[in-house]
Amino acid sequence: MQVAWSLDGAETFVLEAIRSFATDRACPTPPADERWLDVASRAGVLSVVLDAVGRAGHPLPANASRSRYFGVTTQLRARAELAALIRALGPTTVRWVVLKGPILADIVYRRPAVRTYTDLDVLVHPHDLGEALDALEGAGFELVDRNWELVARSGRGEINLTIPNGGLLDLHWHVVNDGRARSQFSVDVRSMVSRRVTVDIDGLSVPTLDPVDTIVHLALHASLSGGHRALWLLDLQQAVLHGGCTVEELRERAQEMRTDLVVQVMLARAARYVDQRLEEWASDIRTRVSWTRLCEMVSGSAPPLGVRPGKHTGRLVFSATRATTGSSAAAVIRSAGQRGILMLRKPVTRETLHASDGTPADRALWIAGARLSE
Rank of each mutant, 00 (worst) to 15 (best):
R111M: 07
L171M: 09
W148S: 02
E149M: 01
R110V: 02
D119E: 01
L150C: 13
R111I: 15
L171T: 04
N177D: 15
L136F: 06
T116N: 07
L133M: 11
V176G: 03
G167S: 14
G155C: 10
L143Q: 02
G140P: 01
N165M: 13
I107C: 08
Y109N: 01
P126T: 14
L168H: 08
I159M: 14
D134N: 10
V151Y: 03
L123V: 05
D128E: 10
G130R: 13
I107Y: 06
I107Q: 05
G166R: 08
V122M: 09
L123W: 05
A113T: 03
V108K: 05
V151S: 06
L136P: 09
V176P: 00
L161T: 07
L123G: 03
V124W: 06
P112C: 09
T118D: 05
H174W: 08
A132F: 08
V176A: 05
V176W: 01
R146L: 00
P164C: 15
D119M: 01
L133Y: 08
Y109R: 04
A152H: 06
D134P: 02
V151I: 15
L168E: 08
V124I: 10
D170G: 06
A152G: 05
L123F: 04
L168D: 06
L129N: 04
P112S: 15
A139M: 03
H127D: 15
D119R: 07
R146V: 00
A135P: 00
R153K: 14
L143G: 01
P112W: 02
V124S: 13
V122Y: 01
G130L: 09
H127W: 11
W148P: 00
V114I: 13
L150K: 10
G155R: 07
V144E: 11
N160D: 14
H172K: 00
L171N: 06
V175P: 00
E142A: 15
D145I: 07
L143V: 00
I159G: 05
L120T: 01
R115A: 13
E137N: 03
E137Y: 00
P126Q: 14
P112N: 12
E142Q: 15
I107F: 08
V124A: 11
N147F: 00
A113M: 02
V175E: 00
T118H: 05
N160F: 14
L129V: 11
F141M: 12
N147S: 02
L136T: 08
V151E: 03
V124E: 10
D134Q: 14
T162I: 12
